[in-house]
C-alpha cells in the first residue's frame, strides 16, 4: 500500500466517531468603518512603528520624491511594468543613475541584483491596522527576487489601495499569485526578544504613499 493510502486509511480510522463539523462563526470585523484619511494616518503610524520611512505625496509629485530619495544612488532595478512616469525625473540627471529593468525577456541575475543600490516597486494593497504592504507579483511589482536581494526597497503605494483590516485585503488579493506581505524592514527578535531591524531582507524600507 502506498504511504498516501496508508495515511488516508489511518485518518479515516481515527475519525470513525464521525466528529461533527462546527458552523464557523464569523463575528470578527470584515470591513472598515474608518475614513480614507484615518486609514492613511493609521498606516503611516504603524509603518513608522516598524522603522520604515514613510512619505505622503500627491501623485503628481511622486517622480520628484523618488528622485530626491535616490539622490546619491548609482543604480536601481525596477520591474518592467512600473509606471514610466514615476521614473521621469530620474533619467534627466545626466544619466548618472543606471536603471535596470527586470522583464520576462531580460531577467536580472542574483549577482546583478546584489549589486544595485535599491529596488523600486508598486504594491497591490495595504492593511492599515497591521501596517502591512502586500506585493502580488503583478507587472508593476515584479518577481519576488527583485524586491528581496537589494538592500533598499522603495515602494510606491496608491492611497486608494489602503484598506483597514486584513479580511478586506484578502478579498482583494488572488490566493494563487506569489505574494509577499511586508510589515517593515527585515527584523529579528531572536536575541532577548528585542526587535532589531536589518537582517537578511532589505534593511531599508521607504514607502511613498501617493494621494
Amino acid at each position: 500500500m502506498s504511504a498516501r493510502e496508508d495515511i488516508m486509511g489511518r485518518i479515516k480510522s481515527a475519525l470513525r466517531d464521525a466528529p461533527e463539523t462546527p458552523v464557523v462563526p464569523r463575528e470578527y470585523r470584515r470591513s472598515s468603518n474608518m475614513s480614507a484619511e484615518q486609514r492613511l494616518e493609521q498606516l503611516v503610524d504603524r509603518l513608522e512603528d516598524y522603522k520604515a520611512n514613510v512619505f505622503v505625496t500627491p501623485a503628481a509629485k511622486a517622480p520628484a520624491k523618488l528622485a530626491e530619495l535616490l539622490a546619491g544612488s548609482s543604480s536601481i532595478v525596477v520591474p518592467h511594468g512600473l509606471p514610466k512616469e514615476w521614473l521621469a525625473e530620474l533619467t534627466d540627471d545626466a544619466g548618472s543613475l543606471a536603471v535596470h529593468v527586470d522583464s520576462p525577456e531580460r531577467r536580472l541575475t542574483v549577482a546583478e541584483l546584489d549589486a544595485v543600490d535599491a529596488v523600486v516597486t508598486a504594491a497591490a494593497t495595504a492593511v492599515s491596522e497591521t501596517g502591512t504592504i502586500m506585493l502580488d507579483g503583478s507587472e508593476d511589482q515584479g518577481r519576488r527576487i527583485i524586491s528581496l536581494v537589494p538592500d533598499r526597497h522603495i515602494c510606491l503605494l496608491r492611497a486608494g489601495d489602503i484598506v483597514e483590516v486584513l479580511p478586506e485585503a484578502i478579498a482583494r488579493l488572488e490566493a494563487t499569485r506569489p505574494q509577499t506581505w511586508i510589515s517593515g524592514p527585515s527584523a529579528t527578535s531572536d536575541i532577548e526578544l528585542e526587535r532589531v531591524e536589518g537582517v537578511h531582507g532589505p534593511r531599508i524600507l521607504d514607502v511613498i504613499i501617493l494621494t
Binding site: Y28, R46, R107, R143, A175, Q179, S183, A187, G201
Partner: peptide
C-alpha cells in the same frame, strides 16, 4: 494571520509572510 503574529511575537504583523502555490513560471 491576525491570531498568529499577535500571539507569537506580540506584533501586529510579522515583517514578512510568503505565499506560493505550486510553481510560478519565471518567479522563484
Amino acid at each position: 494571520m491576525q491570531l498568529l503574529p499577535r500571539s507569537s511575537t506580540g506584533e501586529r504583523m510579522n515583517p514578512y509572510t510568503s505565499l506560493w502555490t505550486g510553481v510560478t513560471p519565471g518567479d522563484g
